[in-house]
């Protein structure tokens, strides 16, 4: 062994922004997260040139995965063209040389904030979700150490109590986004603030999902063909948002998740939340295979 074999030539810039040791740590943690689906794995969460809470967790996972052959799509709340999504996409392309796309079907890595695309993901695609709060127990147990013990014991009674209280107070489950879900029958995870509409898309899916919270320094994963069951009571079935009957005012699409746009006269219009799907429909292109058909989930 000589110094030559231990040192690397100087470089001004690490490929993919993250340095090699940051990437190796992410690799180790991603593998452990896949081995224990839904279990939060701590990681160091390095600095990246966007502020914590704006997608740093997802960005670090994407930068670890990316190579010049990757095709990257970045979504912010369904839209490809928001400042956050456009900036992250441009940054990834600039530091990795990867191709970018807005089309779900063409992408190999999809980094997303708060939505899962409406078109079905394939086995060769990886979904990276940005997670603001990785701890589903936080509303019922603010102490992180106690919450970890509760995960270790699979002690989730208080999660059901929380849902029960919502039903008693409001007549229905009020949890709109980040619906707590049991993964592989063992760990309850938050699926990140995706709407209830999107949670079934993670259950027994063909693709791998990596969920990464940069500010909170935790990472978890849902491998393909893994059970993701929203917490429900036997007599109160899981319900997705009532968007099946809404029509997009721009593309005429029906049966997909919609954004509500309030109008001056007090009414609302709706438009497709998955912006590139809306563009495809407007251009008369055929979308890929969809998770929902006529507003009904078809696995």
């Amino acid at each position: 062994m000589s110094l030559d074999t231990l040192t690397r030539p100087w470089k001004a810039f690490s490929y993919g922004f993250l340095d090699a040791s940051a990437k190796r740590e992410m690799r180790r943690k991603i593998l452990k997260a896949i081995a224990v689906p839904g279990c939060q794995m701590p990681y160091a969460s390095r600095e990246v040139p966007i502020a914590r809470g704006w997608g740093t967790g997802g960005l670090q996972a994407t930068l670890t995965l990316v190579n010049p052959g990757s095709v990257v799509k970045v979504i912010d709340q369904g839209a490809d063209d928001s400042v956050n999504a456009a900036s992250i996409r441009r940054f990834i392309a600039r530091v990795s040389g990867a191709a970018t796309t807005l089309d779900t079907v063409q992408a190999t890595i999809i980094q997303s904030r708060h939505r899962v695309p409406e078109e079905k993901l394939r086995a060769d695609q990886v979904l990276v979700l940005q997670v603001p709060n990785p701890e589903p127990l936080r509303p019922v147990e603010p102490n992180m150490s106690v919450a970890r013990q509760m995960h270790a014991d699979a002690d989730y009674g208080r999660m059901w109590l929380q849902l029960y209280e919502q039903i008693v107070r409001s007549g229905r489950v009020m949890q709109g986004a980040s619906y707590p879900s049991l993964v592989n029958g063992r760990h309850v995870m938050t699926p990140s603030p995706i709407p209830r509409w999107d949670v079934p898309k993670l259950n027994m899916a063909k693709h791998l999902t990596i969920l990464s919270a940069g500010r909170e320094k935790r990472l978890f994963a849902v491998p393909p063909f893994t059970r993701v069951e929203p917490l429900v009571f036997d007599d109160v079935p899981y319900r997705v948002e009532d968007h099946a009957g809404l029509t997009c005012h721009r593309s005429g699409a029906r049966g997909v998740f919609m954004n509500e746009i309030p109008q001056e006269d007090g009414t609302s219009l709706h438009e497709v939340s998955d912006s590139q799907l809306g563009v495809k429909l407007l251009n008369g292109e055929a979308p890929g295979e969809m998770w929902y058909r006529d507003g009904v989930f078809r696995p």
């Binding site: 690397r8 470089k11 810039f13 490929y15 993919g16 090699a20 990437k23 190796r24 690799r27 991603i30 593998l31 896949i34 081995a35 670890t64 995965l65 190579n67 010049p68 600039r94 530091v95 990795s96 040389g97 791998l208 491998p223």
Partner: peptide
């Protein structure tokens, strides 16, 4: 930017391990 041979190999190995697991 272009990855050097070592970066390419590590990235490809990791993708194989991730798919395998």
């Amino acid at each position: 930017p272009h990855p050097d041979a070592r970066e390419q190999r590590d990235n490809a190995s990791f993708h194989a391990l991730m798919r395998a697991l």
